[in-house]
């Protein structure tokens, strides 16, 4: 049986652990709120851009911009996988990685070349020796900003337009609640009807009696990439929200477990102390009897 001293040091280290996990939980909770707030703002912005595109172009069809055009033959597909940079967030990253592996396993015979790009280190570390890596975007997961998103977007736009890839997909954990995140696959490029909010609002007649500089067409080529940038930014935020939600839950569990262990060990320590006292008493009594 371990001594009282050993129990004490164990209890102390458990107490320290639970302090850390409790703090991590609170930090994640506040970061989660921030990410959700940003998501709302980003949605408003995308809506405004869409409205503006509609005002300029009337109804949007796919010949309007190369980023809207579906290629007839799809040979090379880039999948961007969003994970967190850090661990300690339960099954958040592993769920997505398993989802991705299943996806590629099912499609390994269909003649399409898949390459992977990563936002977030966890996914990259897992796949770096297992698949064709196109690029790892460093330092974008931890602190998602519109600025970093637009940098990622510029690269993706470039490789899409120069024909390196015919389709670009995103794999990201959708944030349902702090308790559940579900891996999902979205199409990033070419843009889909949903991105253009088709069906959501009626087509308006394009405004014509308006000054525009540069011309309307050029203006459109300026606006459409904004929507792509928004999608990347939104995915980053979704990933951040999911990460913090998952970490919150994981750390909450860890805190509860630590509390249980502390209780258990306190009981064992008290027993050990009582046993020591009893032994001592017996020794004294039998010593006295011997006299």
């Amino acid at each position: 049986m371990p001594s009282i001293k050993e129990y004490n040091s164990k209890i102390n280290s458990l107490k320290n652990t639970s302090k850390i996990t409790k703090t991590m939980k609170m930090v994640s909770a506040s970061k989660l709120r921030k990410a959700q707030e940003s998501q709302r703002n980003a949605k408003d912005f995308a809506h405004e851009v869409n409205q503006l595109i509609r005002r300029i172009a009337g109804n949007v069809d796919e010949n309007l911009h190369p980023l809207l055009k579906t290629r007839e033959e799809e040979k090379k597909v880039l999948v961007v996988i969003f994970t967190s940079d850090k661990g300690l967030c339960g099954g958040f990253n592993n769920n997505l990685i398993r989802f991705a592996e299943r996806y590629f396993e099912e499609r390994k015979d269909d003649g399409i070349d898949y390459e992977l790009a990563f936002c977030g280190r966890r996914g990259y570390l897992h796949f770096q020796s297992r698949a064709t890596i196109h690029r790892q975007f460093d330092l974008v997961s931890a602190d998602p900003g519109a600025h970093t998103a637009s940098r990622v977007m510029k690269h993706l736009e470039k490789v899409f337009l120069d024909g390196s890839f015919d389709r670009i997909m995103m794999m990201v954990n959708e944030f349902i609640s702090p308790l559940s995140q579900i891996p999902r696959l979205h199409q990033l490029l070419p843009l889909t009807d949903q991105d253009l909010e088709k069906g959501e609002s009626e087509a308006v007649a394009p405004v014509t009696d308006i000054l525009s500089e540069p011309g309307m067409e050029q203006l459109l080529s300026f606006l459409v990439p904004r929507l792509v940038s928004f999608k990347v930014y939104f995915a980053l935020l979704e990933n951040a929200a999911g990460e913090h939600g998952a970490r919150m839950t994981a750390m909450d569990n860890a805190t509860t477990n630590a509390a249980n262990l502390i209780e258990e060990n306190t009981l064992l320590r008290n027993r050990a102390r009582q046993a020591a006292i009893t032994t001592e008493l017996i020794e004294i009594i039998s010593g006295a009897e011997a006299l």
């Binding site: 009696d209 000054l211 525009s212």
Partner: peptide
Amino acid sequence: FGVLTGHAPMITA
């Protein structure tokens, strides 16, 4: 460029 009150409707990049 600058925009003052009463500017004609305009969209610019």
